[in-house]
Amino acid sequence: MRAVQMLATCGVALTIATAANAQEVDWKKVDATLGKTAAVSGEVHRYGFPRSDLQVTVDGVAIRPALALGGWAAFMPMRGEAMVMGDLVLLETEINPVMAKLLEGGIEITAVHNHLLRANPETFYMHIGGHGDPVKMAEVIRSALALSKTPFNPPAAAPIPAPAIDLDTAQLDQIIGAKGTVNGGVYQFNVPRRDPITESGMTVPTAMGSANAINFQPTGGGKAAITGDFVIIGDEVNPMIKTLRANAIEVTAIHSHMLTEQPRLFFVHFWANDDALKLAKGVRAALEKTAVAKS
């Protein structure tokens, strides 16, 4: 009984400490530094840096930012400071100046690679991480992205509204086994893994990039271009890519995004443009090769 009471007391103390950490961060200053309002999910404050300035095509499909050009940085309170993780979308000529500024400011580079094949212009993805004062880290990220053409200011003219999702989203939800959301003309799924993922002793929430991300962009006639990434462990890699290829879904990259996560993870990126329901069944078959959370 005494042990139970001690555990309960520790649990309350941990909850209070976590809440205190969240309160210690002045999120309004982080918002002001980045010039954006965060999307808040639990303790995670996530900021989007979509490359709306780029006109990227793959196999003749114009890529919407929400499909594959949505850079971001997410902050979470950590032991009185904050942890940051992110994914910055860059052109080849932007990689070195942005990297130099990030490293100079103490932000770690955890990966640089492609997500797509045959993208025109070619795009690259710089994954970042760090721990420290969230305002200072935001300043570094902002100054680094200023060396790219990543937009921060609102467009001079009102943006053209995204078209309606011309897909059977109820059927997609049923096949994938999760509820999708609409974002910028793209239907998106985030399917978490069954077991927790940790980095530096902290659980990495789905809002910080630990979930399977599956995006459908309508291309007309019930078809969709799909891309995203599956978050899997080593033993799942080859069964998954065989399943994707058997379902006419191209594997475009296999790599890591983090450095010291547990368990060791690999991110499998994919692409196809075909009947949306057919592709959803292929995606579902691939998910079944992994340890995903039950919906």
Results as ranks from 00 to 15, higher is better:
Ala82Lys: 05
Leu287Lys: 02
Lys179Gln: 15
Leu91Pro: 01
Pro77Asn: 04
Ser295Phe: 11
Arg194Thr: 06
Asn273Arg: 12
Ala111His: 15
Lys294Gln: 14
Asp275Val: 05
Gly106His: 07
Gln5Ile: 13
Pro205Asn: 06
Ala178Gly: 07
Val182Phe: 12
Thr260Phe: 12
Ala82His: 06
Ser210Gly: 02
Val186Phe: 04
Val44Asp: 00
Ile63Glu: 00
Leu265Ala: 02
Thr57Ala: 11
Ala138Gln: 03
Leu54Met: 11
Ile249Gly: 01
Thr227Tyr: 05
Ala170Arg: 14
Asp173Gln: 09
Val191Trp: 03
Asp235Asn: 15
Ala17Asn: 11
Arg245Gly: 13
Ala74His: 04
Met83Leu: 14
Gly234His: 13
Leu103Asn: 13
Thr252Tyr: 07
Ala291Thr: 11
Ile160Ser: 14
Ala158Arg: 15
Ala13Trp: 08
His257Pro: 00
Pro97His: 08
Ala32Gln: 14
His255Ala: 07
Asp53His: 08
Lys136Asn: 11
Thr206Glu: 10
Leu116His: 06
Gly184Met: 05
Leu116Ala: 07
Ser143Arg: 13
Leu259Thr: 12
Ser52Leu: 04
Val112Gly: 04
Glu94Phe: 07
Ala146Tyr: 09
Gln23Thr: 13
Val268Pro: 00
Val84Asn: 03
Gly11Arg: 10
Pro218Ile: 02
Val231Met: 09
Phe266Pro: 00
Ala211Asn: 03
Asp87Trp: 07
Asp166Ala: 15
Phe267Met: 06
Val140Ala: 09
Phe49Tyr: 10
Gly185Thr: 02
Thr18Ile: 11
Val61Trp: 05
Gly184Asp: 06
Gln174Ile: 03
Leu34Gly: 00
Gly201His: 07
Gly60Gln: 06
Ile175Arg: 07
Val25Gly: 00
Glu288His: 10
Ser210Val: 01
Phe230Thr: 00
Pro196Met: 10
Ala178Cys: 07
Met137Gly: 00
Ala291Lys: 15
Gln5Phe: 13
Gly48Phe: 12
Ala156Phe: 14
Met137Arg: 03
Ala211Tyr: 01
Arg79Thr: 09
Val30His: 02
Glu250Thr: 14
Asp31Phe: 08
Gln55Leu: 09
Ala17Leu: 12
Gly220Cys: 05
Asp53Lys: 04
Thr37Pro: 00
Ile107His: 07
Gly222Glu: 05
Asn21Glu: 14
Pro163Lys: 10
Ala225Met: 04
Ser143Asn: 14
Ala66Tyr: 01
Ile214Trp: 02
Gln188Thr: 12
Ala293Gly: 06
Arg118Phe: 15
Asp26Thr: 08
Met83Ala: 14
Thr260Ile: 10
Val89Glu: 01
Ala8Gly: 04
Asp133Tyr: 08
Ala285His: 03
Arg142Gln: 14
Pro239Gly: 02
Thr123Leu: 14
Val30Leu: 04
Thr169Asp: 08
Ala62Cys: 00
